[in-house]
Write a protein that binds this DNA or RNA. Structure first.
Length: 479
DNA sequence: TTACCTTATCCATCGATAAG
DNA sequence: CTTATCGATGGATAAGGTAA
């Protein structure tokens, strides 16, 4: 429940149509250190917090470095869209006003109207290069991630080149690194809370950070104001006056945040704040929340691959280099689920995992640039099929599903035998067999019923299982 | 440590203008 | 007519500074 003070009731009533507990996401990298609160002077902005450094290089032509609450709102919206659609391309909306209304910002023109300032911040944000560096002091390792928010930006709302066709297709292409960062380290947030706290960039930062911090807090921790200042206090120096000022302003905003996130177990002390384990702001019942709790960080991925799956180091590094973290994580989760589910036997766990990674649980995240090649591949594949019924079923499925899905799953199964009532498929691996069974069996059977109404069942085998079952029979699969 | 101040940002509103 | 952008204004509030 959100408690509203008298100041917010008015604003709340303006956004009645919003669902309570709308879930948004923000990239973890952007929670650990914060953007400037007010207009910075130079073109370089740097912020260090423990072993994490955030530096932003602004683009002079775009105005400089983004600051204030708008970029934070845009970033949380972007992260949410990415998480929802799992696509690097983000569609902004049919107009700037429309876009801003979606974000819950009232629209006004003029030099200091919301439109101009918002436009300015968008330019600054999308033109900036944001670099995150994790410095692991224990082994002297530097992991640096360069995050460019947008690869190419098409701003259509400039009235000079107003074009009706472009208006409805305006989109930005997110930088690959930023995209990966969001997918592998999402922090769930309440969009309504963002709406309420948007007046203060500091409050937004505190909210994002607190939500993230509580999600993995296991025992109480005392954070003194000096630590907090190094993370949140953008313009304050270390002089005594400034320390005092920061403390006062921080507490003021923190109290505001706690009114929204009132389940947070926070005690404000003289020397700092005491965090105790609390419920996260997003309710436990949300499935995505549960998923988020099992987030495996990069190091954990490494250890998991090494200890649980006994992969050689070289192969692990190769996998981490080649595949998105989220894909590997999904594959691990899937494999573990499989193992626990009814004590399913998996002959070779390592091979199963690798196969899961290589076949990626989310084909839609694959690059879409090779559409032409994909079409050729599919044509060739279809030509190689002699059986008319099998081909027709595939054509039905092709209409129903996107090309990447078709390629990832339906091109990796082939009909082995067909009787009047039953069709037997052979799949390339155990993993593909399981996945087809779990996700597409109904649709495949339905497609078959359209082609052969008498059919009642559809059976899947993997090459391995099938081969061992039939022992001497050799099975030919076109690859 | 406190109260007070300046500056910049933020918000709501009005009216003007243009396009469909 | 509706919808969207622009310009201006006044008042509120946040960030950061200063004097006592």
């Amino acid at each position: 429940m959100i408690r509203l003070t008298k100041d917010y009731t008015h604003k709340k009533s303006l956004t009645v149509q919003e669902e309570p507990q709308d879930i948004g996401y923000i990239a973890r990298a952007l929670v650990s250190a914060s953007l400037p609160h007010s207009k910075p002077k130079g073109l370089v902005y740097k912020r260090q917090c423990n072993n994490f450094t955030l530096s932003i290089i602004g683009n002079d032509e775009a105005g400089g470095i983004p600051y204030g609450s708008y970029p934070r709102i845009i970033l949380s919206w972007l992260s949410t869209e990415v998480f929802k659609n799992k696509s690097r391309e983000i569609i902004l909306g049919k107009s700037l006003s429309n876009f801003m209304k979606n974000l819950g910002i009232s629209v006004s023109g003029g030099k200091w109207g919301t439109l101009s300032r918002f436009k300015d911040q968008m330019c600054r944000l999308f033109a900036s290069t944001i670099t995150c560096t994790y410095h692991d002091a224990s082994n002297g390792k530097f992991i640096s991630t360069k995050i460019s928010i947008a690869d190419k930006t098409r701003v259509f709302w400039n009235p000079e080149n107003f074009d009706n066709i472009d208006v409805f297709n305006s989109k930005i292409l997110l930088g690959e690194e930023f995209y990966n960062e969001i997918l592998s380290n999402p922090v769930p947030i309440d969009i309504e809370a963002v709406q309420i706290l948007k007046d203060s960039s500091l409050a937004l930062d505190i909210y994002f950070w607190l939500t993230y911090r509580m999600s993995y807090l296991k025992k109480p921790i005392l954070l003194n104001f000096e630590t907090l200042q190094s993370q949140f206090g953008a313009g304050y120096t270390t002089s005594r006056h400034h320390k005092y000022e920061f403390k006062r302003k921080f507490i003021l905003q923190l109290e505001k945040v706690l009114e929204v996130y009132n389940e947070a177990n926070v005690n404000i002390l003289d020397s700092g704040i005491l965090l105790s384990p609390s419920n996260t702001h997003i309710r436990m019942s949300d499935s995505i929340k549960d998923k988020n709790q099992t987030i495996i960080e990069q190091d954990d991925l490494y250890h998991s691959l090494k200890n649980d799956f006994s992969l050689p180091e070289k192969q692990i590094l190769n996998l981490l280099d080649t595949y998105e973290k989220s894909i590997i994580r999904n594959a691990i989760e899937h494999t573990v689920e499989r193992l626990n589910y009814n004590n399913t036997k998996i002959n070779n766990i390592t091979a199963y995992l690798i196969s899961a990674i290589k076949n990626s649980l989310s084909p839609s995240t694959h690059t879409l640039e090779h559409n032409e090649n994909n079409k050729q591949d599919i044509d060739l594949f279809l030509q190689s099929i002699d059986n008319d019924h099998e081909k027709q079923v595939l054509l039905v499925l092709l209409k129903q599903y996107d090309i990447p899905i078709f390629k990832s799953w339906f091109m990796k199964m082939r009909v082995d035998t067909i009787t009047e009532r039953e069709v037997v498929y052979v799949c390339k691996t155990d993993f593909i067999k399981e996945y087809l069974l779990d996700h597409y069996k109904e649709d495949i059977l339905y497609a078959w019923k359209q082609v052969c109404p008498s059919l009642e069942n559809c059976i899947f085998h993997s090459i391995r299982n099938y081969a061992s079952r039939l022992e001497e029979e050799s099975i030919c699969i076109n690859s």
